[in-house]
Amino acid sequence: MQTVFERTPGLTDAILHYCPGCTHGIIHRLVAETLDELDATGRAVGIAPVGCAVMAYNYFSCDMVQAAHGRAPAVATGLKRARPDCVVFTYQGDGDLAAIGTAETVHAAARGENITVIFVNNAIYGMTGGQMAPTTIPGQVTQTSPYGRDTSVAGYPLRVCEFLATVDGVAYAERVSVDNVSHVRAAKKAIRRAFETQLAGRGFSLVEVLSTCPTNWGLDPVRALSWLRENMIPYYPLGVYKDREKDAAHGEVTGDA
């Protein structure tokens, strides 16, 4: 018998608990495949967040630490500083990274911690059942913005890649999406670039992945993908916001993209 496709060894054979149509599974696979391809799974340590991906520690076959809500970059800091040879990544959602853990995110970035952050942005709190997130877009209906996010009350979403690109410690920041095949392939490339950045010791790398939440958006999986394309990508443009090495090679100054 010929094997034509198999589970990447970077993932365990645990059955994912994610809702049907949720794109976390794709992103898990991209991260695990990348670690395998870089021959880094054996020295990788992942930090799981609080949120939908809390049980990521069961899915990745590398060593895993489950952190308190928002604190993954601080835990990753301690771990990477203690074991510089480990390939350390956090896997965080928007509430975890851009609300309760904003300080940990920004300061890990500012210190140029040589870690990789996988930031899954689905514009909503999923685990708790669909509340407004720091990345919920204006007008978006959630359980706690039932009339649509009113910026006069709830303020504006954070564009994480854009503001982190201004931080000197950040070596690489890119926003990708997993709403179609070509975007998935681009996401894989970005994740690889992020881990390569860490392996080269260049500092903080972050990949923001626009992701769907069909359950809490109240859409079927296919329409959720369309909603992401039509609503999120315009607000959160895809692209490389910073690649210090390439920017330097091209003689560009950060920020004049």
């Binding site: 604190r71 601080a74 301690g78 771990l79 203690a82 074991r83 300061h107």
Partner: peptide, 26 residues
Amino acid sequence: GLYLQAESEIAAINMVIGASAAGRRA
């Protein structure tokens, strides 16, 4: 050794968690 000034006491103890998880005295 490493002295690292954290952004907050919360971050500091979570860094301890990371270093301890890595098997080091922190």
